[in-house]
Amino acid sequence: MSQKNNLISKEQVLHVAKLAKLSLSDTEVELFSEQLSHILGYANELRDLDLSNYPPTSHPIELENIFREDVVIESISNKKVIDNAPQSSNGQFLVPPILND
């Protein structure tokens, strides 16, 4: 599939990759542009169907109102919580500064 037929342009792939904090090689950009376009092309086929009698669904399973009662369950220990953290300090997660421009 050539670039101009792709529903998802290389620029769009790069934009999504940036939002997802992924760095992609040129080959990957080309590949994903093609693959994503293919997926969207399939979704486009659905447009040809008459779906006027089907209400939109937000979830494939027809269930609603699944609740939990407001009852406290014991939390896990601070040690266990912090165990997997790459860095911690006094029971807190230590991460790089987050507001540098």
């Binding site: 939390s75 896990i76 601070n78 919580v81 006094n90 029971g91 807190q92």
Partner: peptide, 26 residues
């Protein structure tokens, strides 16, 4: 509420850091 929105961890202010935590919170 007595508990968090998605799990049974206690909804409480001013506790020791990271003591009201479960796999859902993380």
């Amino acid at each position: 509420t007595a508990t968090k929105l998605w799990c049974g961890c206690k909804n409480s202010f001013g506790e020791q850091p990271n003591t009201l935590i479960c796999p859902v919170c993380l």
